[in-house]
C-alpha cells in the first residue's frame, strides 16, 4: 500500500513540474513580444550564449570532423569507396551530429549557467524585489534568454556544420591525400539543402526550446539554497541531454524530420 502511495505521489509531482515548466516557457515566449525593451537584452543574451560558446563549438566541430573522417576512411577503404568519405561525413553531420552535439554542448555551457544565475537571483531575493517593483521577472529575465536560445542554437549548429566539413576536408586532402575536387563534388552532389541541411537547423531550434524549458524551470522553481543551486545546475544538464536525445528520435521518426 505504501509503495503504491509513493508511486502515485511521485507521478503527481512529476506531472505537476512538467506542467509548471511548460506554462513558464509559453508565458515567456508570449511575453517577449509585449516588451520592446527586451531587444537590447536579447542581444546581450545572444552574445553570452552564442558568441561566448563559439570557441567550444568550433574546437569540438573541428576535431569531430577530423576524427570522423579518419575513422570512416579506414572502413570505406575496405570497400574501395574512400572517395565517399566527405559525403558520409557531411550527411552525418548535417542531419544528426551537428544539431545533437551542439545541443549537448549548449546544455552544458548555457543551460547550466542560466539555471545557476536564476537560482542565485532567487536566493538573493532579486526575483521577489522585481515583483515588488511591479517588474515582471518572466518578461524581464526569462523571455530574452529563451528567445536567445532558440535563435543562437541553429546559428551555432550551422557554424558547427561548416567547421566540421572544413576540418574533414583538411584531413582528407592534407593528410590522407585525397583529391579536393572529388571530395567537394561528392558532397555537393549528395547533399540536398532542403532535405538535409534545413531539417537539421529546425531540429536545433527545437533543442534550444528544450534547453530553455529545463533550465528555466530548475532555476526559478528549484530549491534555492547554495548547495541546491549547484544540484539544480547538474539536473539541468542531465535532463536537458536526455530530452535532446529523446526528442531527436521523436522528431526524426514520427514527424519525418530529416
Amino acid at each position: 500500500m505504501k509503495t503504491i502511495e509513493t508511486i502515485g505521489e511521485k507521478t503527481i509531482v512529476i506531472l505537476y513540474s512538467i506542467g509548471e515548466a511548460t506554462l513558464l516557457m509559453f508565458s515567456a515566449l508570449v511575453k517577449f513580444f509585449s516588451n520592446y525593451r527586451n531587444w537590447s537584452s536579447l542581444i546581450e543574451q545572444i552574445h553570452f550564449m552564442g558568441v561566448m560558446s563559439l570557441p567550444l563549438i568550433m574546437m569540438s566541430a573541428f576535431f569531430i570532423g577530423m576524427v570522423f573522417t579518419v575513422q570512416t576512411y579506414i572502413v570505406l577503404q575496405g570497400f574501395g569507396a574512400e572517395s565517399e568519405v566527405g559525403l558520409v561525413l557531411a550527411l552525418c553531420v548535417f542531419r544528426e551530429l551537428g544539431p545533437v552535439i551542439t545541443g549537448l554542448l549548449f546544455v552544458g555551457r548555457a543551460g547550466s549557467s542560466v539555471t545557476a544565475e536564476l537560482g542565485l537571483m532567487k536566493t538573493t531575493d532579486q526575483i521577489t524585489s522585481m515583483k515588488l517593483m511591479s517588474v515582471d521577472p518572466i518578461a524581464r529575465v526569462v523571455s530574452p534568454k529563451l528567445v536567445a536560445m532558440i535563435i543562437s542554437l541553429p546559428m551555432l549548429t550551422i557554424i558547427f556544420n561548416w567547421v566540421s566539413i572544413i576540418g574533414s576536408g583538411f584531413v582528407a586532402q592534407g593528410l590522407l591525400g585525397m583529391d579536393g575536387g572529388t571530395y567537394w563534388s561528392m558532397i555537393q552532389n549528395g547533399v540536398f539543402f532542403m532535405g538535409d541541411v534545413l531539417p537539421g537547423l529546425l531540429k536545433a531550434s527545437v533543442f534550444g526550446l528544450l534547453v530553455g524549458w529545463v533550465s528555466f524551470y530548475h532555476g526559478l522553481y528549484g530549491v534555492s539554497t547554495p548547495t541546491a543551486v549547484a544540484k539544480n545546475a547538474t539536473k539541468t544538464v542531465v535532463q536537458g541531454s536526455m530530452l535532446i536525445l529523446a526528442f531527436d528520435y521523436i522528431l526524426v521518426s514520427f514527424l519525418g524530420f530529416a
Partner: peptide, 28 residues
C-alpha cells in the same frame, strides 16, 4: 561594442549557411 560582436557572430553564421548552400549541397 556588444552589438558589433553579435553582428559579427550573425554574419559568420550567415556566411556558413551560404557556404554550405553553395559549396556543400545542392539547392533545389
Amino acid at each position: 561594442k556588444l552589438n558589433l560582436i553579435v553582428g559579427g557572430f550573425v554574419t559568420f553564421a550567415i556566411f556558413c549557411l551560404f557556404f554550405i548552400a553553395l559549396n556543400a549541397s545542392t539547392v533545389e
